[in-house]
Design a protein around this nucleic acid. Structure first.
Lengths: 179, 179
DNA sequence: GTCTATAAATTGATAGAC
DNA sequence: GTCTATCAATTTATAGAC
């Protein structure tokens, strides 16, 4: 279901598309859900729940902020892998309807939590202080989220490799490492 | 026009929306263009032309690959600033129609050029060699492109500051710089 | 070039049988 | 729970006057 939205985008996916993919007719779908928008609601809630859960994991709540940040970055990439269609849907929301706007509100709350984490890491001297924390947060998780644009589970690139690359690139950069 | 698409997304923007924004009626628009999809065509072509132009600028074609890469990253961020609605539209294309698929083809060609540049930088020892070049390219320009999700010209963050932050973060990373 | 219709197709959703 | 209609609204696009 969310796979159909992933392929074409929410607006371009019709109930007819969903019905064909589910092997039933349009009207049968309405026996299970009340509207197309409710499907969107369910999907983005699933994504948001998974993302917020990362913030509650012990490694995200204990220890130096840099380590916690690193853990959140890595786990966010893994959530993207495990919940790809749902997270993609969330990332593409524009706020066109009440349901979308509520999802955007929750997402902004999540982003604020990330931003606070980056700020803590700076305050503790764990990461460089010469860049705007808000900007760093956006670029860092923009990089993580961009994975949703091309990653497909089961492809040639494993989720763990991606998570490692993101963390390495974000923390140490591309510059030739010593030598 | 492309601003309307930027706000709601292409599919969710109706000819009525465009007409209201342009201060005329729906039918008047059809005096200037032949279809809604032609508007998309014009917009994404503009974005692609601007991006490909960056690759032809002398600093992109001369000198060490790292420097050329750095220039392309910085200029791509600037194109995003100057052509935000058009580039956003391009980035959101899913390939639902022939026009969209053609745009995706051109974009893939652009991505291949970027990937070749990253490969050169690795070959010349300008950037670390322990990460997959294809993956690095995707993450690097995923970070650049993610700026389209939140950046609005005239806001508090200047285009130059963003371009600097992207280059710094990508090349040197977040880790506390010496000391 | 812009307007008022209006056509033609698509699409989200419902009614009611089985 | 799934089906066959079918509705009602939306929306892209056209016709033709001014």
């Amino acid at each position: 279901m969310a796979r159909e939205f992933l392929a074409r985008g929410y607006d371009a996916t019709t109930m007819e598309h969903l019905a064909a993919a589910a092997g039933m007719t349009k009207s049968s779908i309405y026996h299970h859900v009340s509207s197309k928008e409710q499907l969107l609601q369910l999907a983005v809630s699933r994504a948001l729940d998974a993302l917020f859960a990362v913030l509650e994991e012990p490694p995200s709540t204990q220890g130096p902020a840099v380590d916690r940040l690193q853990h959140v970055v890595r786990r966010s990439a893994e959530v993207l892998d495990a919940q790809l269609p749902y997270v993609s849907l969330l990332l593409r929301i524009r706020g066109n309807t009440p349901v979308e706007r509520e999802a955007l509100d929750r997402r902004r709350e999540f982003d604020a939590r990330l931003s606070a984490l980056v700020q803590s890491a700076i305050d503790q001297g764990g990461i460089r202080a010469d860049l705007d924390p808000r900007l760093v947060t956006r670029l860092l998780f923009g990089m993580v989220n961009s994975v949703a644009e091309w990653y497909r589970p089961g492809g040639s690139t494993a989720a763990a490799e991606i998570a490692d690359a993101v963390v390495t690139l974000a923390l140490d950069g591309l510059r030739r490492t010593s030598d």
